[in-house]
């Protein structure tokens, strides 16, 4: 009987081990060859906004994430994930492993079998590698939505990604069918601070929709390298003037449109007068969490917002 038990254990181990430990080798953005599990079961993310949120949307098994501490009530939260997916540290099995830099011991305690991080993170890739296979992304090399694609590919959640992409394509098609996007210019501002205006080549999901739909963007935005950002001097504010402009505020900090307005007033007193979009009532202040997120839910929200603002109303009486 004892011999039979041992034999059964050997057989199980012989068949099970390759399955459990099945790995493949990928090259990350640092050029490192990393052996990652084919079917990761416990993923840790070191950036909430740009990695955890996509992973949650994809339905990947995230067990630990970098997060933030709320200015409002000091609670821990996953930026943008709460408002775009409903997921939080409280209602999920995701462990909070700290703000930047993350707590490596908390990370190790979560026992991840795969770690995703960004090159901008303060954690050392080799140290992380000692905890679990670590893939480092560099946003200067890989576009943020391309990182999303790679996350899906590495976590085996591509079928979910295809559904999300298909949905976005249909929403985009509807937008371009109903709005003459190529004749409308849109200027996007992340916000003003310290005498400058923060702009990006592609500002999150809103920037992605604007690009994908074919809207015109100001030259000063087009001149930024893909994936890049710039602090535009307030003196050059009119360069951003467009038919429609968007500015953002931090909803996660309980801010509202008045905060975005106050920041711009601080950067350029009377800024509205310098912008046709603003004087004509086409300057919108929207929550940054939705606009900036790298998320297909955010893409949906942004597409719908643009459609609502820009599609012509049906004439009265028809």
């Amino acid at each position: 009987m004892r011999l039979l038990t041992i034999a059964a254990a050997v057989v199980i181990a012989a068949f099970a081990s390759p399955i459990l430990a099945e790995t493949r080798t990928i090259t990350d953005d640092l050029g490192r060859q990393v052996e990652i599990p084919v079917d990761p079961q416990a993923i840790a993310s070191l950036d909430d906004l740009r990695l955890t949120l996509p992973l949650i949307e994809l339905g990947a098994p995230v067990v630990a994430s970098h997060g933030r501490i709320s200015r409002v009530d000091s609670s821990q939260y996953i930026r943008s994930a709460d408002i775009l997916t409903g997921a939080s540290f409280e209602n999920s099995n995701i462990a909070f492993i700290g703000i930047e830099p993350v707590d490596l011991e908390a990370l190790a305690a979560a026992e991840p079998d795969l770690i995703f991080t960004l090159v901008t993170s303060n954690a050392d890739a080799d140290q992380l590698q000692a905890i679990a296979p670590t893939v480092v992304f560099d946003e200067d090399i890989t576009d943020r939505f391309a990182i999303y694609d790679r996350l899906a590919e590495m976590t085996g959640t591509e079928p979910r990604l295809w559904v999300l992409k298909d949905r976005y394509a249909k929403q985009l098609a509807q937008l371009t069918r109903l709005v003459d996007t190529e004749s409308i210019s849109i200027g996007l501002i992340e916000g003003g601070s310290d005498g400058a205006i923060a702009i990006e080549h592609t500002f999150g999901s809103l920037g992605r929709v604007v690009r994908d739909a074919g809207f015109i963007q100001p030259d000063v935005i087009e001149e930024i390298a893909p994936g890049g950002r710039a602090a535009l001097s307030a003196e050059l504010l009119p360069l951003l003037d467009s038919d429609i402009m968007f500015d953002t505020y931090r909803g996660d900090r309980a801010e509202g449109p008045e905060n975005a307005h106050a920041r711009m007033e601080e950067v350029f007193p009377g800024y509205c007068e310098a912008l046709t979009a603003c004087t004509e009532g086409n300057y919108y202040r929207i929550p940054r969490d939705e606009a900036k997120a790298i998320s297909y839910n955010a893409l949906s929200a942004m597409t719908m917002m643009l459609l609502t603002i820009l599609s012509a109303p049906a004439p009265v009486g028809e």
Partner: peptide, 14 residues
């Protein structure tokens, strides 16, 4: 700043 990066990030330039 480290304990609450979000709350204090307005101070970096100042």
């Amino acid at each position: 700043l480290l304990l609450n990066e979000d709350a204090f990030d307005d101070f970096r330039v100042w």
